[in-house]
Design a protein around this nucleic acid. Sequence first.
DNA 1: TCTAAACCAGATTGATTTGATAGGAATTAA
DNA 2: TTAATTCCTATCAAATCAATCTGGTTTAGA
Lengths: 200, 200
Amino acid sequence: MKLSKKGEYALRALIDLGIAAEVDRELVQVAELAEKELIPIKFLEQIMQEMKAAGLVVSQRGKFGGYRLSGPASEISIGSVIRLIDGPLAPIGCVSHTVYEKCSCPDETHCGLRMLMLDVRNAIAGILDRYSLADVVDVTTRKMKRNNIPLPFSESRHPPSGSARCRLLPSRGARATVPLEQRLAPVEGLLSNLLPDYTI
Amino acid sequence: MKLSKKGEYALRALIDLGIAAEVDRELVQVAELAEKELIPIKFLEQIMQEMKAAGLVVSQRGKFGGYRLSGPASEISIGSVIRLIDGPLAPIGCVSHTVYEKCSCPDETHCGLRMLMLDVRNAIAGILDRYSLADVVDVTTRKMKRNNIPLPFSESRHPPSGSARCRLLPSRGARATVPLEQRLAPVEGLLSNLLPDYTI
DNA sequence: TCTAAACCAGATTGATTTGATAGGAATTAA
DNA sequence: TTAATTCCTATCAAATCAATCTGGTTTAGA
């Protein structure tokens, strides 16, 4: 039931880009992401390109280039990222909604294992498809603020001259995400449990 | 988030042994299990030995030997089987309860991904540790009965002479498992949903 | 125009895991 | 004694994973 390193790296990088967007940092270079997250730079480069091809991020080439999210973090579900990098969420192919695959068992309709794994799949997807990148970013930045840890990416790394620069991203103003409080109340051990802010 | 073939085979074999116990079949040979479940026999042999070493099943060597569950199916949790064969249930090491492993991220306490994955781990473990082999066997046999499908393993494959044979297993009489109805009510897509028997 | 910084692209590699096979040794019922 | 079965160990091929290497192309700015 593992998430691959690649998937982990992809998500960590996306979360960073989400934080960067939050603090109006328009571009982040692969090198900076890799350094902060302790990810092999060339490997991350590969991953970023995969995500670019999928439309999750956009890039600016050339000197002082970098990556940013292609749109609001609230519209990227965690599940979709994992599906992109690691494939279906389902533990076995015969319960996958996105990439169903017939299994070798003689009678699928009377397979108790399948029934159980369907529940597991639904539990996983129920979490990973419900929460967006914005939610994870939100939770992360809140916790950092609460603990007086400065948010990363506040300073552009290479602003060669001094001060005001044109923004690549239109200001999104207030976050567009539906606040967590208004969502389906979690049952057990959800993000909320980790954050006294959210009382359910 | 995959369950390995090995894990799948292990569970399918255990479910079969559970059904076998239910119909008072005392021993099942690897060959029979493999044939029924379309599992490569030599591979299953290996798996059975691993499970034997872990104490999940016991074997009878020699002619007309075979395997059976070492105890009541109600005392084998699905989670423990998967942990044995595939390792921890957690998607990443830093949220594993059984085999914690420090992850490479710079600040574990402010890692949003980790918080999320902890929830995923809890969701998975919440299912797989809650349900026992007996539950899965139960659900399977009920469905088969409802659809008038004869339970497998009703006939011992090699009863060379005719009729009554001494039982290796003491009759367990009524099942010792706590019925599903009395358990924690599931929220979404649990086994119950697949079985109109259980109305929640 | 030149150059350094950055992304882009594809091939390659090495380690590990997965899924399986092979061949026989030990055990046991008949 | 024989046949059927588990037990044991070794080996293997393919896939996947995680990463690296090499060399491009694009771009901002001096």
